[in-house]
Amino acid sequence: MKQTLVFMLALASVPAFAQDGNALTAPGGGWNRAGLVDKSGELAVNYPYNLIDRGAQRGRRMIEGSLGKVGKKRPFHTLVANGNPTPLYTDDDGRYARAYSFGSGSNSVEVRSPDGKSLKRVQFYEADRTRPQPVIRIIAAWDDNQAEVDLHVVTPDGQHAFFGHPALTNGGGLDADTVDGPGPENFTMTSPQHGLYQVWINYWGNFGGDGYHFDESTRQKPIITSRITLVFNENTAKERRESFVVPLRRIGELTLVKMFKF
């Protein structure tokens, strides 16, 4: 059984901002005790557990909350997990849920308004030293909430992580395929192989009320922009990161973002 970070963001519907005092009511920051006992009632120091087990991604947690009914076409809020910003899309009721694989040690989650104002930031300490640190993390996000964009990663042994094959036998893996907003899609490895990695981004199609379709006229922007971030040795003194902005002009476009050796 896995723990869950729960964000309860009480934002007014108009305008789409909140006062700092009620932007985040749970969880409290501080220590996060490890273990398999459900501590759901102790929100000051523990987070409710969630049944998540995806093999290579079994350490991930859900970040959840609500931004209020402010409409789908508003400027995006931003979710920042351990310094990694991604657009924050919600459903019609303003709710969101995003997965993140936090490692041991000090972690942080922040929600920012479209104008960059920090609505709330939570710093917590993961005391479970058996929790592995992500050594390679690759994050893909984009700026059109109807676009269905997919992250693809090829590892040195030739395995291919994508929506149809998310968990690799070498320990790497993707979170669940993101079809309800602008990402993020997240690939992590805690014990990466040495060799050449390939990072690709694919504008697969669009997703709407009637399901998947390939009508480019529904795009909110003439060119969709995808930001791909590579993070190495996250949350350690050796951390470094690289970011790439890739334009996606038409459905079916497949772009090699980066090849790197580890």
Score class of each variant (00 low, 15 high):
Met1Ala: 12
Lys2Trp: 04
Lys2Thr: 12
Val6Tyr: 06
Phe7Thr: 10
Met8Thr: 13
Leu11Cys: 08
Gln19Lys: 14
Asp20Lys: 15
Asn22Thr: 13
Asn22His: 11
Ala23Val: 06
Pro27Glu: 07
Gly28Ala: 14
Gly29Ser: 08
Gly30Thr: 08
Asn32Phe: 07
Asn32His: 12
Val37Ile: 14
Ser40Asn: 14
Leu43Ser: 09
Leu43Cys: 03
Tyr47Asn: 12
Asp53Ala: 09
Arg54Ser: 01
Gly59Met: 03
Ile63Leu: 14
Gly65Pro: 02
Ser66Val: 05
Gly68His: 09
Gly71Val: 10
Gly71Leu: 11
Lys72His: 14
Lys73Cys: 07
Phe76Ser: 15
His77Arg: 11
Thr78Pro: 00
Leu79Tyr: 03
Val80Tyr: 03
Val80Pro: 01
Asn82Gly: 08
Pro85Tyr: 10
Thr86Phe: 05
Thr86His: 05
Pro87Val: 04
Leu88Trp: 01
Thr90Ile: 07
Asp93His: 11
Tyr96Asp: 02
Ala99His: 01
Gly105Lys: 09
Arg112Trp: 07
Ser118Cys: 10
Arg121Gly: 04
Val122His: 01
Thr130Trp: 04
Pro134Ile: 01
Ile138His: 07
Ala140Trp: 02
Ala140Phe: 00
Trp142Ala: 06
Ala147Gly: 12
His152Leu: 12
His152Ala: 10
Val154Gly: 01
Pro156Asn: 04
His165Lys: 08
Leu174Phe: 02
Leu174Gln: 03
Asp175Phe: 03
Ala176Lys: 04
Pro182Thr: 15
Pro184His: 09
Pro184Ala: 11
Thr188Tyr: 03
Met189Gln: 11
Pro192Ser: 05
Pro192Leu: 02
Pro192Val: 09
Tyr197Lys: 05
Val199Gly: 04
Trp200Gln: 11
Gly205Trp: 03
Asn206Arg: 15
Gly209Lys: 15
Tyr212Gln: 13
Glu216Gly: 04
Ser217Met: 09
Thr218Gly: 02
Ile224Val: 15
Arg227Pro: 01
Thr229Ile: 12
Leu230Thr: 09
Glu239Lys: 13
Arg241Asn: 14
Glu242Arg: 14
Glu242Gln: 15
Ser243Phe: 04
Phe244Gly: 02
Leu248Gln: 06
Leu248Asn: 01
Thr255Arg: 15
Lys261Trp: 09
Phe262Val: 13
Phe262Ser: 07
